[in-house]
């Protein structure tokens, strides 16, 4: 715990690491979130299948955009990371529940 807190502190304070981590989170983390969201939205919605895919893709791009903005807008790296992880967990759960057998 203490080590984590120190690291977070350190990374937050160092501008280079801060920006680099945010960029990585924004580009790759958000992409992962968007992929997960697309899968969840496509599998678990009430609309017909072709529509579900279209809708999932549209919404996932918006999700990507919003998470990029979030990563750069929040004050701390921790919040940025949580902003990615919490929705990811949510979508992961959704996907697991929506897909019979639990595999994506």
């Amino acid at each position: 715990m203490k080590i984590n807190a120190n690291f977070m502190f350190f990374a937050d304070r160092n501008p280079r690491i801060n920006i680099s981590l945010r960029v990585l989170m924004a580009i790759f983390g958000s992409y992962g979130l968007a992929l997960l969201g697309a899968a969840a939205l496509a599998a678990g919605t009430l609309v017909a299948k072709p529509d579900a895919v279209n809708l999932a893709i549209m919404l996932s791009f918006l999700l990507y955009l919003l998470s990029v903005i979030w990563v750069f807008a929040t004050a701390t790296l921790l919040k940025a990371a949580l902003g990615l992880l919490v929705p990811a967990a949510f979508f992961g759960l959704w996907l697991a529940l929506a897909t019979p057998g639990g595999t994506s």
């Binding site: 697309a38 496509a42 579900a52 893709i57 897909t99």
Partner: peptide, 23 residues
């Protein structure tokens, strides 16, 4: 983005059509 939607976010199709059916 939409025009490349299935290429950029393939998981949507994959999860909706796990058998790989061409929609």
């Amino acid at each position: 983005l939409l025009l490349f939607g299935n290429m950029l976010l393939p998981t949507a199709m994959q999860s909706a059509y796990p058998d790989g059916m061409n929609m």
